[in-house]
Every structure is written in C-alpha cells, then in structure tokens.
Design a protein around this nucleic acid. Sequence first.
DNA 1: GTGGTCTAGACCACG
DNA 2: GTGGTCTAGACCACC
Lengths: 121, 121, 121, 121
Amino acid sequence: MNIAISNTSEKPIYQQLFEQISAQILGGRLDSGYCLPPIRQAAQELGISVITVKKAWEELERSGLIHTMTGKGCFVAELTPDQKLQIRNEMILEQMIRDVSYYKSFDLTLDETIEMLKKIY
Amino acid sequence: MNIAISNTSEKPIYQQLFEQISAQILGGRLDSGYCLPPIRQAAQELGISVITVKKAWEELERSGLIHTMTGKGCFVAELTPDQKLQIRNEMILEQMIRDVSYYKSFDLTLDETIEMLKKIY
Amino acid sequence: MNIAISNTSEKPIYQQLFEQISAQILGGRLDSGYCLPPIRQAAQELGISVITVKKAWEELERSGLIHTMTGKGCFVAELTPDQKLQIRNEMILEQMIRDVSYYKSFDLTLDETIEMLKKIY
Amino acid sequence: MNIAISNTSEKPIYQQLFEQISAQILGGRLDSGYCLPPIRQAAQELGISVITVKKAWEELERSGLIHTMTGKGCFVAELTPDQKLQIRNEMILEQMIRDVSYYKSFDLTLDETIEMLKKIY
DNA sequence: GTGGTCTAGACCACG
DNA sequence: GTGGTCTAGACCACC
C-alpha cells in the first residue's frame, strides 16, 4: 500500500486511489494474483472511510484490473504484459485527448506543447 | 458570443464558458474594450442559467481578463500582447503540470508522451 | 415511478430498481429526455435510502440508459428504437445464458425447457 | 467427484457444489447408496474450505438428496426414478419462474424467449 | 476473517 | 433546487 492521498486535491479520494493502484498494477509494481489489503485495513491505514476504499476497489474491478472474491479478498487480475500495456495506453490516451482539446482552445501549437512538456518533465 | 456549451461534458458549464472566453480574449479574438453581452442575454442565447453566466464572468474578472462597470457592462481588459501571452502561458502551464503528473504516475516517458501527442494533434 | 420494491427478495434493492427502470426505458414506457425524479424524492417515495437509489441511477448511467446532469437531474438517454432493442436483447441474453447453463446441468433438453416455459407463461 | 468450481463466478462456491452434485444424483450419475467422499478430502481435492463443503453437504441433506450417518459418511439417498424426476423438475421450475419474471419485465414474449433459447442451446 | 448491502446524515459543487 | 462525495455504523452472506 504505497499510496499518497491528498485531502486538499480537487480530485475525489476514491479516484486518487483508483488511479494510483491502476498505475501500480499496469506498471508491474503490483503483480498478478497479489491480494490487496482488506478494505477495512486499507481504510484505516490511509485514514479514510471504508466506503471510499470500496468505491475505488469497485472501479478497479469494473476496469478488469482486480477480481473480488467474497470472503477471501481482492486479487490483482491475471493480465499479460500486452494487455496491461494496452489498458495503460487507453487510460492515458483518454485523458490526453481531453488535455489536448484544452491546449488547442488556447491555440497552443504542437511544438509549443512539446516545448512546455520538456520543461516540466 | 461564439461559444459551444456541452451539457454532456463532465466539465461544469461555467468553466466551459470561462475557458472559451479566456481563450478568445488571450488569442485576440475578443479585443480590449469589447463589451460582453449582458448576462441575461448571454444566458438566453446559450440556453443556460443566469447564475451560471454570472459565475463565469466573476471568474474572468478574478483572472483580470474582464472588468465590470456596474450599470454599464463587462469590458475586456486592456492588456498588452505580452501580458496576454504571459497569462495564457500561466493558465496552460498550471494545467499541464497536473496532466504530466498523471502521465508520470503511469511511468510514461517524455518521448512516449510526445509521440502520443503527435498522434492526437 | 411505477416501481415495486421487495425487501424480502434475495435481489439487492438497487438491482431491482435498476432492472425495473431499465425495462421501462427499453420498453418505451419511459421516453427519451424524461427527467427521473430526484434521488431524494425517489428514496422517500419508495421508502429506501438515498444512497440505494443513487447506486441504481449510477448503474443506469453506466449502461448508457440515463444521463446525469449535476444540478439539473437525471434524464433518459436519447436512444433509437433499434439501439433500445439491441441493449434489451443483450441484457436478456446475458441472463439467459446463465439460466440455460443451469438447466443443462440437470440434463434438461431444449424441448423440455420449452414445454415448462409454456406452462409458466 | 467430477466437479468444476469457478472462483470467478458470482455464484457462491457452496451453491455451485450443491447444484452440481444435485444434478449428478438426480441425473443418475451418482447412484443411490453411493458414499460421498469425506468433507476434508473433498475440500482438499477441490482446493476449497472444509466449511464450504460442509455447507453444501448440509444443503443436500436438507433437500433429501443425501443422508448423513455420523462417523460413517454421507450417502446418496434411496430414491425411485420417479422421485428423482419430481425433485429435479421442482428445482428447475422454482428457478425458471424467477427467470421468466425477469424476461417478462422486458416484455419478452413466449415466442421470443423460445427463439433465443434455441440459439443458446 | 473477508466483502456486500443498507442505513442516516453531513458538507460541497453546480444551476 | 439538483447531484457528488465522504463519513460512521449496522447487519448479512460467504469462506
């Protein structure tokens, strides 16, 4: 549970959780078959509500990244590296399309965008 | 009022308004001194609530892009091209920093980011 | 809101809600653009919790049957009769596949199944 | 013990066990007087918990399909073919009534139901 | 022990 | 007014 929750962020807590765990699974930092901590334990460790954790877990399951076995726990899904890469790229692409439409509304060119990106990275 | 409002977007309407007008001002499509339409008229034209328009106007004023003169209307602020460019870049940078932190959480490298951007643009 | 909730049923309340409203939308008894009652009102009318209603509404949105507009309400999605028919058949088919696998485990033949169905209908 | 347990299924494991053994008994694949394996052995073979097996056995006994003789084991009950057929049909009918009520909620006619069934079988 | 459901009630953002 | 999020706490089913 290497998770950082920001209460001040504009992003809902459950979404922060979802994104960070997604990234860990898709990046191979959480292996297939790994058992996530019980929602009550995770909630306590992170200092948030059980329900908030559950909501994040539900999103993960809906995305096919974990699999819940009632009474046993929640396990990281069995995904091939290819599948992981594809899901990762879809998630990023979906977000990036929104980002680019914002940049474009300011007439930001591709070159300008790349230049700014280089500074930030 | 060349504005496109999407009811299905996840973005709040007032923010869509704010972003589009900001972009028009900073891109020179709305000249300094131009008088924005009265909020009631704008609301009617766009088919949205007066309160929503007012909120967008307030945000614009807070950003220094327009200036409200009670009883007369809202006018685009007098800004030099340099000032406009600077505000524009700040707005974009602020957003891009958030975007990049999202990409990074998926271990997306700068090169990968640029490659995906090129496809989207 | 022509809904019947059974507290004794083994089915979760939110799922009963989801299924019944799905059926009403797909069957044309709730027209496109119709505004569902506010979740608080629906909860009160049905004598259940706001959260339970919300969960059902979320499932409906996830299935593309309704569209939520924060601050305005939840509206039945614009779907062509063809789209409705397709979604309906998919929902039924998904369930029927499970049903059939149960029948088959008892060596129930297609003819026997049809015969029993005729009696029940 | 020709049993297939699915951990990914939404159905509880004990119920999967119950249904499959019921079907085997009622279909004559498990003869009257046959001694079921000890729950510990069954649990080990299937890779599930002893408690889960015990719960399935209890359900089977409650349905009159097996008979437990403490210290000796669990034996398939003595049932005439007619009795078996009747119990089988009751079990199926009970389920099918629920299934049909679901189909009917979508205004699925008997003919449509039969047509879809034929495709699935 | 685990997750699944339902409850009541609070606070915030949006229109 | 609307929905969106988060909270605490209860009860149940499953393992």
